[in-house]
């Protein structure tokens, strides 16, 4: 089993051969079942204090992976370990502790806060759930500390406010405060800045980086924006149609992408410098829309300009190409 490439000695979360299948039935008269492999045999590990970026196009399974590691989905195959424990077979009590140690930061700062709850109520709720005997005074103090940590100063001013009185950036900070008040060891941030204005993104990203230092938590940072992902992440994993095709340290991945999909992706990023424009050629991917139906083939085979026969015969294994840079592509075997 080619697991060595992903397993780190100090990993906090480990995914082993994780597979998630969605089925839907199409057609009214002729019922046709369609199977989509949202996660197809995914192996991945996230280290202690590490921020792992996960990039890929929409529909590649990034969010599904994020939900899976938080035990918010049933799986069709594989296992997910949190500190060595299989999260899918946890007992009720263990699950409760697991919920305390893992949290999520959502994409939509407008939809993810209850509009009829005050900031205090929103942030204190998770803390109270896991600290049933906490005195109100301690809770208030805790909430204030947390607000300070996410840069909402002076914190007292925000306690009684409602989400509609806050700007998008402030709302997202409230969302982050809610996620970190229980001191989680592991966070999933699913596109946390994609709905914010450009001028506000930087501060939220810097807060996430500071939190890692202060709380020592690990993070899975899901984004389709590679520049943003490189800014916050230690390592980046690239996903394509449910498969991880490449994983390396952030700078290495951006400077030296190996997988044809990663190469297309990186070369398509606009750089904010008019001296370094794209050439006007279109990226060399083949057209078409595909889903992963669980075939034993490379998920990129249908679109890859370098496709060979064997790409469709079996799925390439993940191999190391030096410097902790792993790629799943027959071009490198």
């Amino acid at each position: 089993m080619p697991l060595i490439w992903v397993i780190r000695m100090d990993s906090i979360v480990e995914l082993r051969n994780v597979t998630k299948i969605f089925t839907n039935t199409q057609g009214i008269i002729k019922r046709k079942k369609r199977t989509v492999y949202a996660l197809h045999d995914v192996n991945l590990s996230i280290g202690e204090k590490e921020i792992l970026g996960l990039i890929g196009e929409s529909g590649s399974g990034k969010t599904t992976l994020g939900l899976a590691v938080l035990k918010l989905l049933d799986l069709e195959g594989g296992e997910i370990l949190f500190r060595g424990k299989d999260i899918l077979n946890m007992k009720k009590k263990e699950t409760f502790r697991f919920r305390e140690k893992t949290e999520m930061i959502f994409q939509d700062p407008y939809g993810s806060l209850n509009p009829v709850q005050s900031v205090y109520k929103i942030i204190s709720t998770p803390y109270k759930v896991f600290n049933k005997n906490a005195k109100e005074r301690d809770v208030i103090e805790r909430v204030i500390d947390t607000l300070e940590m996410v840069g909402l100063n002076p914190p007292e001013q925000y306690l009684a406010k409602y989400p509609n009185q806050l700007s998008g950036g402030q709302r997202q900070r409230v969302g982050i405060a809610r996620a970190i008040i229980t001191n989680p060891e592991f966070l999933v941030a699913d596109e946390p800045v994609s709905m914010l204005d450009v001028s506000l993104r930087a501060d939220v990203l810097n807060i996430l980086l500071e939190l890692r230092e202060k709380l020592g938590s690990s993070m899975l940072f899901i984004s389709h924006d590679i520049a943003v992902t490189q800014y916050v992440s230690d390592r980046i994993a690239v996903m394509h149609l449910g498969q991880i095709v490449e994983i390396a340290e952030s700078t290495e991945l951006v400077n030296n992408p190996l997988h044809p999909y990663t190469q297309t992706l990186i070369s398509s990023i606009p750089i904010p410098d008019p001296e370094r424009r794209w050439d006007t050629s279109e990226p060399k991917v083949l057209a078409g829309e595909y889903v992963n139906e669980g075939k034993d083939e490379c998920s990129f085979a249908n679109k890859c300009p370098f496709v060979m026969d064997k790409c469709r015969r079996s799925r390439p294994k993940m191999i190391e190409k030096g410097n902790k840079h792993y790629v799943a592509c027959y071009l490198y075997e």
């Binding site: 930087a202 990203l205 810097n206 520049a227 800014y231 904010p272």
Partner: peptide
């Protein structure tokens, strides 16, 4: 605005614009 956007391969700390 230019200082607030990350770019690949630029090892610069980005800064948001305070206020709204």
């Amino acid at each position: 605005l230019l200082n607030s956007i990350p770019s690949i391969n630029r090892d610069k700390k980005i800064k948001g614009i305070p206020g709204t």
